[in-house]
Design a protein around this nucleic acid. Structure first.
Length: 472
RNA sequence: CGGGGAUUGGCGCAAUUGGCUAGCGCGCAUGGUUUGGGACCAUGAGGCUGCAAGUUCGAAUCUUGUAUCCCCGACCA
């Protein structure tokens, strides 16, 4: 701990990941299996995601609400595919107030059944549609194997649940949601990813079609980073929710749901990190600038305070903690990934300059006092853009076309990454590919073009290239 | 949930043919000298060895159970 030693980023990503999450104080393990404590620095990331996304959600006309944590087990049983998908990972409350419960309560793994039951009660006319409700909450899924942020038994997310009179309107919203997520990833988190349809076997349990946003991690694994589901009329049919249309006859609403979780923070950490630790994109960084008055230089602190006051459009911290050398402070904040560091000492006081160091390139720049604000604005924007460009380039550089099964296998054995290959869309082929190579279908990209191709495994006629990869 | 490994001050580790007051480094506190890339000296605080039982004159060490973590699989945002 003294040197904040991290495992090697390049050769040992998963250990590096655990080290950096714990040492940068993003999160810690809880005494309960598979659960994590999100510490203030990690929670600040989530708050910034919430702030950014909540504006976009509300602008679309979605209102926030809150539904109960407990869902009667009987609710789940109404939608067969849904219960089949979630039953294995449900946490169930069987005792309440010291008494065995007659109706067991599931701790929500997602809120479709609970929310739609109320929709049915509240909305009976076509004039009530569309319904647009979102909630920020926690959910519990009893996962077999957990991983900080990426897969924990309890996690935080938002889940939007909308209903429309027509399938077209609902589909448009499913697309809106995934694009809104992509925007959050790129503009806030400087991450690039691929939007696309999930295969039948990978789609949301009980849904009609799912769209995912897949991001590529440095070890060539793909992270399902959020999803937007076209539920068709499956749920309204299951719970027998219909509204009266303009002619007085009954029609079942078309529904969709979409979710974005704290898993995204795990993706953020890996996508930009390096051997020194975290690298925070400025827009999401809880602290964008740290000012370090060189210890022992007496006038430095008051100048640091003055600089901080002049930079009140930014999230700025001064580190004047006693007893640490400048070098120790530098390393501490680099581990936490603060985008810009300002060093100020006696030398700068006489020259009228400060030194700015950027986290992403380690480049040091000398800047005059009067140019500081302008320069910082430019640098923060540049870092944000460069990080996004870098992640996009990495993703594209690690997306390979495979036109034969041998080629496919070879890629999986060596570089991994996304594999773009024709697939006949038969689940047998999908399963066999997984058995042979560990790769699963990640998605059919929204912008995939129709082609005359042959399935990479069975050779049957295939119209589109799907993306395959090793999933997180 | 199956296979493997682990758990000893905040962190990383040491201490078994069962034996003395459980050590060391880092961190932390206090004082001093330092201070532009992980400083140094001195003094000091901090442990019923994950938890629960058992064997024994005696358990960090042996036995059983249990919890949690890590790695590899099957399941997933």
């Amino acid at each position: 701990m003294s040197k904040n030693q991290l495992a090697d980023f390049k050769t040992n990503l998963s250990e590096w990941y655990n080290d950096v999450v714990l040492k940068a104080e993003l999160a810690d393990y809880a005494p309960v299996k598979g659960c994590m404590v999100i510490r203030p620095y990690g929670y600040a990331l989530w708050e910034n995601i919430q702030k950014f996304m909540d504006v976009l959600i509300k602008k679309h006309g979605v209102e926030n609400a809150y539904f109960p944590l407990f869902i009667p087990m009987s609710y789940f049983e109404k939608e067969k595919e849904h219960v089949k998908g979630f039953a294995p990972e449900l946490a169930v409350v069987t005792v309440g107030g010291g008494k065995e419960l007659v109706d067991k309560l599931a701790v929500r793994p997602t809120s479709e059944m609970m929310m739609y039951d109320l929709y049915k009660k509240w909305f009976g006319s076509w004039r009530d549609l569309p319904v647009r409700i979102n909630q920020w909450c926690n959910v519990v899924r009893w996962e077999k194997r957990t991983y900080l942020f990426l897969r924990t038994s309890e996690f935080l997310w938002q889940e939007g649940h909308c209903a429309h009179l027509t399938h077209e309107e609902s589909i448009a919203e499913v697309q809106w949601a995934i694009k809104m997520y992509a925007q959050t990833y790129s503009e806030l988190m400087a991450m690039y990813g691929i939007m696309g349809y999930k295969s039948e076997s990978e789609k949301f349990a009980g849904g009609f079609k799912s769209i995912t946003f897949e991001t590529l991690m440095p070890n060539g694994k793909s992270l399902q980073s959020c999803t937007s589901h076209d539920l068709g009329q499956n749920f309204s049919r299951s719970i027998e929710w219909s509204v009266q249309d303009a002619t007085g006859s009954k029609t079942m609403p078309w529904q969709n749901s979409w979710g974005f979780s704290t898993r995204s923070i795990g993706g953020l950490i890996m996508s930009h990190g390096d051997e020194k630790g975290l690298v925070m994109p400025p827009n999401i960084a809880p602290t964008q600038i740290v000012i370090i008055p060189i210890p022992g230089h007496n006038t430095a602190l008051s100048k640091a305070t003055e600089i901080q006051n002049n930079l009140n459009n930014y999230r700025v911290k001064i580190d004047d903690k006693a007893g640490e050398t400048a070098g120790a402070k530098f390393n501490k904040w680099e581990l936490k990934g603060i985008p810009l560091r300002i060093e100020i000492g006696d030398r700068d006081m006489t020259s009228g300059t400060v030194i700015i160091c950027r986290r992403d390139t380690s480049e040091k720049i000398t800047v005059k006092f009067e140019d500081l604000s302008k320069t910082i604005d430019k640098l923060l924007k540049d870092i944000q853009q460069k990080l996004f460009d870098k992640h996009k380039k990495f993703t594209i550089d690690n997306t390979f076309k495979a036109d034969s099964y041998d080629e496919f296998k070879k890629i999986m054995e060596t570089s991994r990454g996304f594999i773009s290959a024709f697939w006949c869309e038969e689940s047998e082929c999908e399963a066999q590919i997984k058995t042979d190579t560990k790769a699963t279908t990640r998605c059919l990209p929204l912008d995939a073009i129709e082609e005359n191709g042959k399935c990479v495994r069975c050779g049957k006629k295939s119209s589109h290239r799907w993306l395959f990869g090793l999933s997180y």
